[in-house]
């Protein structure tokens, strides 16, 4: 049984077809990579799954329930966590408070005007921070965190919503090669432990071939290939539009 199922998804902007007829699914604990040239429609596809955009055609279902047509907030409530290409955290809060916000939201305690936040879910937040290795930085402001730590904080915040599906938009952009692999292996471990399905876009082919169970290749809004690492690497169409001639040589 798949967590996420996308059927015949399509979207056009002002007459230009950005995404058309895309179908795929992701299973619990599976890491699915979405690759393709810039402008191939990856962001559009991603935003349709995350609720930021409404599709013109097709459907998105999460655990059997349709989520296409819902806004980003409702999609999040259904159990979709998300990290952003440009890290987005709450800058006026500490690392722990960032995670507490996700927990408070998940437990529907946001509309409380009286009780102090300091007393709510501190221990649970610390436990999540420990899972991503940030427990020592719980009291720090997010503004002073190193880039790689911010990415891990985003991961912990996304986990606070107990997601069934995790959407990661270029999770390793701007990181050093060794950090990239470390972050994605951490994601891989959490996904396996918690049975979370992960859909991510990525430009670093080392990362993709290293951690993805399956790879989707998008070009001009349509899926042109789907398969595991070796199959994608050998696919002539993918080499022509995306990987180029020296694929995998580094």
């Amino acid at each position: 049984m798949s967590v996420l199922s996308v059927q015949g998804l399509g979207k056009s902007f002002g007459g230009v077809q950005a995404v058309s007829g895309v179908s795929f699914s992701v299973a619990p604990g599976e890491m699915l990579a979405l690759i393709g040239p810039n402008g191939a429609g990856k962001s559009t596809l991603f935003n349709m799954v995350g609720g930021q955009l409404q599709p013109d055609a097709g459907s998105v279902t999460l655990g059997g329930a349709t989520i296409s047509g819902l806004g980003p907030r409702a999609v999040a409530r259904q159990g979709v966590g998300r990290t952003f290409q440009i890290t987005a955290t709450f800058g006026s809060m500490t690392v722990r408070e960032n995670v507490q916000m996700a927990l408070l939201s998940h437990r529907r305690e946001i509309w409380c005007f009286w009780r102090s936040v300091a007393e709510r879910f501190g221990a649970e937040a610390d436990a999540l921070l420990a899972q991503v290795g940030l427990e020592a930085q719980a009291e720090r402001a997010t503004g002073v965190l190193a880039y790689g730590d911010l990415k891990r904080l985003e991961l912990a915040v996304a986990l606070g919503n107990a997601p069934r599906l995790l959407l990661m938009d270029e999770p390793t952009a701007g990181m050093a090669p060794a950090e990239r692999v470390a972050l994605m292996q951490l994601t891989r471990r959490l996904a396996t432990e918690r049975g979370i399905a992960v859909l991510f876009t990525e430009h670093d082919m080392d990362v993709v071939f290293d951690v993805a169970d399956r790879i989707l290749v998008l070009d001009r809004g349509a899926l042109i290939a789907e398969g595991d690492g070796p199959a994608i690497r050998a696919n002539p169409a993918v080499r022509a539009v995306y990987l180029g001639t020296d694929a995998g040589s580094h």
């Binding site: 040239p37 810039n38 430009h203 001639t245 020296d246 694929a247």
Partner: peptide, 10 residues
């Protein structure tokens, strides 16, 4: 080269 497809990077 940041954020570009391998074929474009070439």
């Amino acid at each position: 080269s940041e954020g570009l497809a391998p074929v474009i990077v070439q």
